[in-house]
Amino acid sequence: MTLEAGAELAPKTYPVTRASLVRYAGASGDFNPIHWSDRIATAVGLPGVIAHGMFTMALVARAVSEWTDGAEVVDFGAKFTNPVLVPDDDEGTSVTVSGTVKSVEDGLATIALTVVSGDQKVLGMPKVSVRV
C-alpha cells in the first residue's frame, strides 16, 4: 500500500491467552515468571500474570508489517505504561493496534500508534519509522 501523511491504518486486533505467553516465552527466551505464574506475579505486587511488554511490541510490529507489506523498520519504540493482564481462561484478552501516518519524508514513513487492551492504552508514545 502507499503510505500518505494523515492516512489512518485499519485497526488490528490480536488475541492474547496464557498459551500465547508460554509460546512467546519459549520463542524469545524471556522466562520471567511474572508472565506465567500468578503466585509469583502477585508476590511482586502485580495484579496477576501480565503479558511480556515485548510480546505486545511484537504484535505491534506484526500490525506494522501487515499495513506496510513488510516494509523495513528503521526505528521502533514504546513505553510500557499499563500492563496487559491475561486471565487464566480460554478467552484471555486481546490487544488492538491502530495507527496514523504522521509524515512521509526522506524515504521514511513515521507512524504514530495507539495500542489498547480492553479500553486501556497499554503503550506510551509507541512510534515506528519504516522505509518507503
Partner: peptide, 17 residues
C-alpha cells in the same frame, strides 16, 4: 532477580535488517 524486573521502555534503531 528477574521476577522483580518490569519493563519500562524499549527502543530499537536498526542500521540494517
Amino acid at each position: 532477580e528477574l521476577s522483580r524486573i518490569v519493563h519500562g521502555e524499549q527502543k530499537f534503531s536498526y542500521a540494517r535488517p
